[in-house]
Design a protein around this nucleic acid. Sequence first.
DNA 1: TAGGCCATGTAACCGGTTACATGATTAG
DNA 2: CTAATCATGTAACCGGTTACATGGCCTA
Lengths: 181, 181
Amino acid sequence: MNTQTLILAILNFGDASGYEIKKFSTEGSFSYFVDISYGSIYPTLAKLETDGFVTCQTESQDGKPDKKVYSITDIGRHEFVSALSTPPNSDKFKSEFLLVAICADLTTPEVMAQAIDKRMGELEAKLEMIRSLREECDHPATHWVSRYGEHVKQADLTYLRENRDALMALATQAKFGEAAE
Amino acid sequence: MNTQTLILAILNFGDASGYEIKKFSTEGSFSYFVDISYGSIYPTLAKLETDGFVTCQTESQDGKPDKKVYSITDIGRHEFVSALSTPPNSDKFKSEFLLVAICADLTTPEVMAQAIDKRMGELEAKLEMIRSLREECDHPATHWVSRYGEHVKQADLTYLRENRDALMALATQAKFGEAAE
DNA sequence: TAGGCCATGTAACCGGTTACATGATTAG
DNA sequence: CTAATCATGTAACCGGTTACATGGCCTA
């Protein structure tokens, strides 16, 4: 999914500046399944404006820097809806944790424990965030996605909790390297 | 996680050629949490060899092209284990499906149904693959990861099955655009 | 007064993909 | 006869990140 479609999606929920778009994609309703950086937001917004998909209005604020607020246009919305209509690509998923887990017998209990705890902490934080999304807005589709995310992440966390010991046991077994040293 | 560590991890499970590494990362035990292409495998293998992390032996086969079989060295294994020891980065997750879902009210029931069915099909296939991994090998850590994956993907699929109708309902509601056209 | 937040933007860089080149063998 | 599998490799390209530049305000 390209940055353009993502930004259009965010702007379709409401006007925003580049800075706000970044926040939204990092902390808002979209944050658990996308991510973009300023380095791609600002150039894309510029391109979006020249293409007529968004318009821009500079707002002066006192005590804060000027703000360039972007709004999606009808052409932009049309572009976005037609992008939505093409069958979505499969989820992209990469997990370093699972690489460590699958190599559990090569690591030490310390390393493994640290990796598990880090992951559990992240999962808990993400769950908390996903849940809080529902309190902040009552958009039905956002609720559906939030519950979906909650369900899946909860299943993830539950498995980790219940099988932490089993994984630790694999990391605890004697390593061939240790005997030789 | 860089290609280098990933290839080292695969070679740590056994000798392999570039072609086999690709297969392994696409269909094997690693396939559901990583992916790499030839364009990154072959150059990385070359670099790995000059760095002394792997050795290479060319095997002639009759009826098939020559095969360059790579083996991890002790230095390579050491490099890999030390890479494993640094706390793993968070999972990378991107979902176009969720973008469509969160914009359900902008799409048509047809588009939504297609997206859901595609996803469910993919999930079922992935589940099947994850389960089959356990029958092919009895490496304990691989089993742990496989059960983990199964659990999470199963939760995903279950939610989709049970809440498909709710999402469809959101896509079915009248769109503002339709009234105007 | 140091650091964090607000706010925009650019340039260099990089990891990785896509597409291509090559070619023999086997299965349908 | 076509398509797929086996097998290695390169070059162009590309999307996106990182790091930097700039600067005022507010809080600790």
